[in-house]
């Protein structure tokens, strides 16, 4: 069961990011930043890492003239996150 703990979610920021994207379909950068309380650069690097691992997708669109970037969890991302949660719960209740 330890192998179900996903290495990709090891950092607190990534864990928080995935938690937010599990319960919200689509979230923009500023909302993520506000909820997590991290700097732009820090958040951006974690977002890129999660995108590379295909845990999240990035959508860019224009609202009027302003570009707006939103983030969504992928199917695989959600699945792995659920596994991660189950593994955590097992660690607590199991032994």
């Amino acid at each position: 069961m330890i192998e179900n703990l996903q290495k990709v979610f090891e950092s607190r920021v990534r864990l928080g990011l995935m938690s937010i994207l599990m319960v919200n379909d689509s979230v923009d950068f500023n909302t993520l930043k506000e909820n997590l309380g991290v700097t732009d650069g820090n958040l951006a690097s974690h977002l890129i890492a999660l995108e590379k691992k295909e845990m999240i997708t990035v959508t860019k669109e224009f609202v009027g003239r302003k570009p707006k970037t939103t983030y969504q969890a992928t199917k695989i991302g959600k699945q792995l996150f659920k596994q991660h949660l189950a593994a955590l719960e097992k660690l607590i209740n199991g032994n």
């Binding site: 607190r12 864990l15 928080g16 938690s19 937010i20 599990m22 319960v23 919200n24 979230v27 909302t31 909820n35 997590l36 949660l85 955590l88 719960e89 607590i92």
Partner: peptide
Amino acid sequence: LSQIHNMMEQS
């Protein structure tokens, strides 16, 4: 787990 729970609630 509690951090995950808080984040889901708060967001």
